[in-house]
Computed example of a mutant assay.
Amino acid sequence: MEKAIQVKGLRKSYKQLQVLKGVDFEVEKGSIFALLGSNGAGKTTIVKILTTLLKPDGGTATVNGFDVMKEPDYVRQSISLTGQFAAVDEILTGRENLIMIAKLRHLKNPYQVAEDLLSRFGLADAADRRVSTYSGGMRRRLDIAMSLIGKPQLIFLDEPTTGLDPEARIEVWNIVKELAKSGTTVLLTTQYLEEAEQLADQIAILHEGRIIVSGTLAELKKLFPPAKVEYIEKQPSLEEIFLVIVGKKEEK
């Protein structure tokens, strides 16, 4: 399979604090890759490096075949980033936000682009309301819609459901699944283990500056010792797997 992201030996420190200590992973094109880790594990630092917002101290990283250090302009042209908080203009309407981004990307028909995305993301009825009146889920949907303008090959979602209620979270999950079905590669960072369990083709756990395990959910389940209750084999949740793996590393 062709790789959308290749990371080798990535290192980053802030003064005396070494955040990344040699991170390695690959993401296949058209897949959903979930990067799990506790607060401060370095997930956002990795995203910032891969989106050219931060320079690494060492190692290499390529995104869509472009080196993030040597070819940052090409990287930016082929990706989109949705951060932890919705980057929308609350004074403007949903439609105006989309038209503004489409114009900034020099698209030929920004009004039609906005119309198509409003329909796709279920925002047509609220299109002409100010974003300040939107719910958290609606803002996040608009934020992701804005990220898709220009049809990026790869989208980074940095903890996209932080602060959302369960219903809004499921809405975002459905959007992510649709993106992958359409061929867009998704790198997702999250603290919600159920989110990775529901969405990801590949899961990596970042702990103490390194990827300590990576694989499909089925592969990670094999790392968890089987437990039986009477005659029924207990299937571990991703949360249980995460805690066992991280616990073993801390014991060492």
Rank of each mutant, 00 (worst) to 15 (best):
V23Q: 11
V23N: 01
V23W: 00
D24C: 09
F25R: 03
F25W: 15
F25L: 14
E26K: 10
V27F: 09
V27I: 15
E28G: 13
E28H: 04
K29T: 14
K29P: 05
G30C: 03
G30T: 06
G30Q: 10
G30D: 07
I32P: 05
F33E: 00
F33T: 02
A34S: 15
A34V: 02
A34E: 01
L35R: 03
L35Q: 04
L35K: 07
L36P: 10
L36R: 03
G37H: 08
S38I: 08
N39S: 13
G40F: 05
A41K: 06
K43F: 03
K43W: 09
T44F: 04
T44C: 10
T44Q: 02
T44H: 03
T44P: 06
T45K: 06
I46C: 15
V47M: 12
V47G: 05
V47F: 05
K48H: 13
K48W: 02
K48P: 11
K48R: 15
I49Y: 09
L50P: 07
T51C: 13
T51K: 02
T51Q: 02
T52E: 10
L53S: 05
L53I: 08
L54N: 11
L54D: 10
L54C: 07
K55D: 11
P56F: 10
P56K: 06
P56V: 05
P56L: 12
P56R: 02
P56E: 12
G58P: 06
G59P: 08
G59V: 12
G59H: 14
T60D: 13
A61N: 04
A61H: 06
A61S: 14
A61K: 04
A61I: 12
A61R: 01
T62D: 03
T62P: 01
T62S: 13
V63N: 03
N64E: 14
F66H: 15
D67N: 14
V68K: 04
V68S: 04
M69V: 15
M69W: 04
K70I: 10
K70S: 11
E71K: 13
E71P: 00
P72W: 07
D73N: 14
D73L: 14
Y74W: 05
Y74L: 15
V75L: 08
V75D: 02
R76D: 10
Q77H: 11
S78I: 09
I79V: 05
I79H: 02
S80L: 08
S80Y: 00
S80D: 00
L81R: 00
G83T: 10
G83S: 02
G83Y: 02
Q84K: 02
F85H: 14
A87T: 03
A87L: 09
V88Y: 01
V88L: 06
V88A: 08
